[in-house]
Design a protein around this nucleic acid. Sequence first.
DNA 1: ATATTATGTAAAATATATTTTACATTATGC
DNA 2: GCATAATGTAAAATATATTTTACATAATAT
Lengths: 66, 66
Amino acid sequence: MKNNIRVERAILNISQAELAERVQVTRQTINAIELGKYAPSAVLAMKIARVFGKKVEDVFELEDTD
Amino acid sequence: MKNNIRVERAILNISQAELAERVQVTRQTINAIELGKYAPSAVLAMKIARVFGKKVEDVFELEDTD
DNA sequence: ATATTATGTAAAATATATTTTACATTATGC
DNA sequence: GCATAATGTAAAATATATTTTACATAATAT
């Protein structure tokens, strides 16, 4: 599962901590997902996309291994 | 987390078992998600939406409790 | 240069999703 | 009515996401 959270955060100019706060998870969760350590739940993916004003598919991309 | 998997399945005329096969999970997993017993992972939500030719947001809807 | 903010990481605990096996109920075709 | 397919359900096991606490490093501002 790839994502462009870093880019979208840069556009909004918000930190991992602020994104975490906005979607109600810890900073470590955002960090891990952003770095691709694991994939989020659908709920979290939708919340993150919503913060960015984008669709889930515009922020996250399925890989062949998923 | 609400969803309209049942409707989308009806449009494609496929059973829970066939949807499960197409997204590589068990039939029970599709049944549980369709009935709202729990929310899927982002990977599974994206695979399901892809089968229906829809965006995740067109198949799943965040609720206030999510 | 130093203080402050942001990011990376890690281990243990907890919550949640998914599988497996199995059976019950409901719908559908014949 | 009977066979068959489809759906609902449940308990236990396993996999995975998320939290908590804590510390390390990198970047930025003053």
